[in-house]
Design a protein around this nucleic acid. Structure first.
Length: 444
RNA sequence: GUGGCUAUAGCUCAGUUGGUUAGAGCAUCGGCUUGUGGUGCCGAGGGUCGCGGGUUCGAAUCCCGUUAGCCACCCCA
């Protein structure tokens, strides 16, 4: 019986595993550079946790089942609810701002396709406890740097920046109430993929006869790409009153955010684009999306403010901002840009073993070398010398340690530096002292 | 959930209008006198032709179903 992997699940042979770990390594390095702390949470959670956050519809897209104790459970499709619980439970004891990150596998029961599998890794980075734009700036700067770490530049990706808060002010200025605004935001989110006539049709119930003109104004806003135009547009929209005040305050926060990002060196990556609102209702302020600047334009990462979510999931009132980046789309992009390094996992040493007596000597030295933190390998059964050298080369070893009968008799080992071809005898009882030198300088 | 394309060795692929025992390259394993290098030479293993059914004297080849993969839609936390 030959078993296959489940649809949408991946196996990582050593090469693929090395590529995956390269991605994890860069993610981790950048998060640490910003002094974010790594946390982790269970892979299996109560189903209710996800229903509470996202509604009953989510169940159709989960790996969920009943466990032996009759509990309704689900493999985690995302990290945010677990994280909100972790933070919420200890909120009063955690020093703020709380800057945390995680790299973990997530599971969604969906039809696999390009850039999307049923099991995938996500880089989750979040800040809790800071409501001001400083937190948004920190997070977006980290996002930019995390992508730059792979060798991607501003020709390769951009971060679209938008703001649900500003939209709500705008829509309020248009005379819409909260419910109507939410509906309109949902339509804006889909505008890119929707026919204009369809959009008008869907706007009509909330807007009425003027839906077409209204849509025209929305399209004008979405086309804005610079802060000056945005400011002018907003000031024309409402010049006095509460709404005008709120818009003025919000634009001040925009200015702070943009200045911080400029100062952090992320300016060239930022693209104002109010067309991004993110479908999820729980986003509350700035929202952003990193996407490929060329080709497909696929989303690489997405995130934003979710100031109300921790409370909704049973925690205290706690402002939050975060983003998530998946490994699948990122790996695809790196591959297409030729930015996937080739990984050689090769040993420092290979022992060439002449016989049983030599094997004992080699294994003793190998134990020492391994304790010193270097990599040494040797054939597990006796083989001809020629074959052993060939294998040492194929494995990419830097040095051969040759244990023949002559060497054993004299208490030495012959070292060969494969890059120069130079050989030298080393006393076996002085290896601990001579090996670091050898690793440093080689033989020439 | 809907649709399109695909499925032959570990990988990339040949395989004639349906016709004997399904092939190649790469990879793997063994050997080329147990003291020296990725190339070389010799040899070997490895396939229920995705799976099930049908048509036929005969199916990798034609038909139906099914599963999986890829792609698009839906959705996208």
């Amino acid at each position: 019986m030959q078993f296959e992997t489940l649809p949408g699940f991946r196996e990582f042979y050593p090469d693929a595993c090395a590529r995956r770990n390269h991605i994890f390594g860069q993610w981790r390095k950048v998060a640490r550079a910003f002094n974010f702390l790594e946390y982790d949470a269970p892979v299996l959670e109560p189903l209710e946790l996800y229903i509470e956050k996202s509604g009953e519809e989510i169940v159709g897209q989960l790996f969920n089942f009943e466990d032996r104790g009759g509990r309704a459970v689900a493999l985690r499709p995302e990290m945010t609810p677990s994280l909100a619980r972790l933070v919420g439970a200890k909120a009063n004891g955690l020093k703020r701002p709380i800057k945390w990150f995680n790299i973990g596998e997530h599971y969604r029961y969906e039809r696999p396709q390009k850039g999307r599998l049923r099991a995938f890794y996500q880089y989750n980075v979040d800040i809790f406890g800071e409501a001001g734009p400083g937190a948004d700036a920190e997070l977006i700067a980290l996002l930019v740097q995390a992508l730059q770490a792979f060798g991607l530049g501003s020709d390769d990706f951009k971060v679209r920046l938008s703001d649900r808060d500003l939209w709500l002010h705008m829509l309020a200025a248009e005379g819409l109430d909260e419910d109507a605004s939410a509906t309109v935001l949902g339509i804006i989110d889909k505008l890119e993929r929707m026919d204009r006539s369809k959009a008008i049709e869907r706007l009509a119930p909330v807007i009425g006869d003027e839906a077409e003109a209204f849509l025209g104004r929305i399209e004008e806003v979405i086309a804005i790409r610079d802060f000056e135009t945005l400011t002018n547009y907003m000031q024309n929209l409402a010049s006095e009153g509460d709404i005008a005040d709120q818009i003025r305050i919000r634009l001040g926060e925009w200015e702070q955010l943009l200045n911080s990002l400029q100062a952090a060196g992320a300016g060239e990556f930022i693209q104002i684009d109010l067309g991004i609102v993110r479908g999820l209702a729980y986003y509350t302020g700035f929202v952003f999306e990193a996407f490929e600047a060329s080709g497909e334009g696929r989303a690489l990462a997405g995130g934003g403010r979710y100031d109300a979510l921790v409370k909704k999931l049973g925690g205290p009132d706690m402002p939050a901002v975060g983003f998530a980046m998946g490994d699948v789309t990122l790996a695809d992009l790196l591959e297409s840009k030729g930015l996937t390094p080739t990984y050689v996992q090769s040993p420092d040493f290979i022992a060439i073993i002449g016989g049983p007596e030599a094997r004992d000597a080699a294994m003793g030295d190998a134990a020492l070398i391994r304790r010193m933190g270097y990599t040494i390998d040797y054939p597990l059964k006796d083989q001809a010398f020629g074959k052993q050298f060939k294998e040492a080369n194929q494995k990419g070893a830097r040095f051969a340690l040759i244990y023949g009968s002559e060497e054993i008799e004299q208490g030495v080992v012959k070292v060969r530096d494969f890059s120069s071809g130079v050989e030298q005898m080393l006393p076996r009882d002085g290896l601990e002292a001579s090996i670091p030198d050898l690793m440093q300088s080689g033989l020439s």
